[in-house]
Design a protein around this nucleic acid. Sequence first.
DNA 1: ACAAGTATCTCGCTCAACGAGAGAATATGG
DNA 2: CCATATTCTCTCGTTGAGCGAGATACTTGT
Lengths: 151, 151
Amino acid sequence: MSDVEEPMRLVHLLRGLTVELDLFGAEFAASNGLHPTDLRALIHLLDAARAGEVVTPGRLGEALRLNSAGTTGLVDRLEGLGLIRRERDPGDRRKVRLVVEERAMELGEGFFGGLIGDLVGAMGRFDAAELATARRFLLAMTEVVAAARGM
Amino acid sequence: MSDVEEPMRLVHLLRGLTVELDLFGAEFAASNGLHPTDLRALIHLLDAARAGEVVTPGRLGEALRLNSAGTTGLVDRLEGLGLIRRERDPGDRRKVRLVVEERAMELGEGFFGGLIGDLVGAMGRFDAAELATARRFLLAMTEVVAAARGM
DNA sequence: ACAAGTATCTCGCTCAACGAGAGAATATGG
DNA sequence: CCATATTCTCTCGTTGAGCGAGATACTTGT
């Protein structure tokens, strides 16, 4: 086995994993009447809510690389589905706060909950040192991809 | 540090990595006048070409979850960009073979080449045992996600 | 030869996202 | 303070990827 074969197999494994995760998300979205963009937005909003950050349509559109018109449409859809609510920012009344509704939390739980449980369960077959190695590996790969973006 | 915190951090790391890879692909696609679907199709076609498999519009559409009309449009776009060529299958003349052009190989090289090199380079900081652990980890995670699909 | 099956393509439509710009609120320079 | 620039969101008209339905061309089983 040459020096470069194992790394190449890992690269393909990595790509295969992202494909599976994407497909999983797409299937979940479709079975809940959401578009892929809606699911990405929901994930972003739930992450921000958990971190205690305020998200405005502007920030959301920036994160998803949508222009303002597309963002308005997206927020309209999510609001129509009862997943979020618009609230004027009392401090700066040009701004709109996107408030996540209870229903969105439940939906997120349905999406992540089961999968996360299974993933954590599968990690039980690895000891602490192995998990630390996996963590270091994922961090290194993430850094490479992040650095490769915007070049 | 509790039993469940490190696995949770790994789950988020995994998701972060797929997000970075998706964004990388989206940016590459946009800067080459391709749509996300076009890039996914190109990846599928290049993989198949490397494995020596014949891809027809039907198989491509199935892989990308497009219906026949959407697939025809996709193939039209790729053909218009000079990335692939339609060829009637001489054995079964209902079928069309999608032949990858040289230009597509070069584009794929431009997309993967640099990133793969960087990824493989970063793997140089891990010894063989660690890479084996990473491989086992990625395989386990992929299995979990694949199993979670279609349930 | 004919019916049934398979592979691809055409037609008309829907709707997510785009570009341009309007409207409302806030910041800033004279 | 008032005029002007800036910021944030939304509206309007358009484009185009992808869908459903069905036409067309070829193959296979009887």
